[in-house]
Deep mutational scan, measured.
Amino acid sequence: LQLFIKTLTGKTSTVEMEPSDTIENLKAKIQDKEGIPPDQQRLIFAGKQLEDGRTLSDYNIQKESTLHLVL
């Protein structure tokens, strides 16, 4: 599924993920695209901070969801 990652600067990146992927996997993919180390990334979806060990489906993240990346 395609996700949009929006940064505080207003920049939006697109990443392709599976519902079974963990937040950790997602942060690794963001690191590949943006060069931001996972330990500096905080991802927010629906007002919640996402935890590394959980999966996208745990948070009911659907295709074309927008996640907010806070550093």
Results as ranks from 00 to 15, higher is better:
70 V>E: 10
27 K>V: 02
58 D>I: 03
3 L>G: 00
60 N>T: 05
63 K>A: 15
23 I>N: 00
24 E>V: 07
49 Q>T: 14
69 L>D: 00
26 L>E: 02
39 D>G: 10
30 I>A: 01
37 P>L: 06
47 G>R: 03
30 I>M: 04
58 D>N: 05
58 D>S: 14
44 I>M: 12
52 D>Y: 05
14 T>A: 09
18 E>T: 09
57 S>H: 10
56 L>H: 01
62 Q>H: 10
3 L>R: 00
3 L>S: 01
23 I>S: 00
24 E>W: 14
61 I>A: 02
8 L>A: 13
26 L>R: 00
22 T>D: 03
12 T>A: 06
70 V>I: 14
29 K>M: 10
9 T>N: 14
45 F>Y: 13
66 T>G: 02
26 L>D: 01
55 T>D: 02
6 K>V: 15
14 T>F: 11
22 T>F: 06
52 D>E: 08
10 G>R: 03
13 S>R: 09
56 L>T: 01
5 I>P: 01
58 D>G: 04
70 V>A: 07
55 T>W: 04
37 P>N: 07
54 R>A: 08
33 K>Q: 13
40 Q>G: 06
55 T>E: 03
17 M>C: 11
54 R>F: 13
32 D>Q: 14
33 K>M: 15
26 L>A: 01
18 E>Y: 14
71 L>V: 13
2 Q>S: 10
44 I>D: 04
57 S>V: 07
28 A>W: 11
15 V>P: 00
30 I>G: 02
44 I>P: 00
33 K>W: 09
21 D>L: 03
68 H>M: 14
3 L>P: 00
32 D>L: 13
17 M>N: 01
53 G>Y: 11
55 T>S: 09
70 V>W: 12
49 Q>W: 14
16 E>Y: 15
34 E>F: 15
46 A>N: 15
48 K>H: 12
67 L>D: 00
16 E>V: 12
52 D>W: 03
66 T>R: 04
32 D>N: 10
11 K>M: 10
16 E>M: 13
62 Q>C: 05
14 T>G: 05
71 L>H: 08
55 T>Y: 07
14 T>H: 08
55 T>A: 06
35 G>T: 02
62 Q>T: 14
53 G>L: 06
44 I>L: 11
39 D>T: 10
30 I>N: 01
10 G>L: 04
11 K>I: 11
20 S>G: 12
60 N>P: 04
59 Y>A: 02
64 E>V: 06
64 E>S: 11
1 L>P: 03
47 G>D: 06
37 P>D: 07
22 T>E: 02
9 T>R: 10
34 E>W: 15
22 T>Y: 07
21 D>P: 00
40 Q>C: 08
33 K>V: 11
13 S>G: 05
37 P>I: 04
41 Q>F: 15
28 A>M: 13
43 L>M: 03
35 G>Y: 03
29 K>H: 07
3 L>T: 01
53 G>V: 07
34 E>A: 09
4 F>D: 03
65 S>N: 07
31 Q>K: 09
1 L>A: 04
61 I>N: 02
70 V>R: 08
27 K>G: 00
50 L>I: 04
70 V>K: 06
26 L>P: 00
10 G>M: 04
39 D>K: 11
39 D>V: 08
4 F>I: 11
35 G>E: 03
43 L>G: 00
20 S>N: 12
12 T>R: 06
12 T>S: 07
17 M>V: 13
41 Q>W: 08
53 G>D: 12
36 I>G: 03
20 S>R: 08
11 K>C: 08
66 T>A: 05
26 L>C: 01
61 I>R: 01
11 K>V: 10
18 E>C: 09
47 G>T: 04
19 P>L: 12
29 K>V: 10
24 E>D: 09
64 E>M: 13
47 G>F: 05
63 K>S: 15
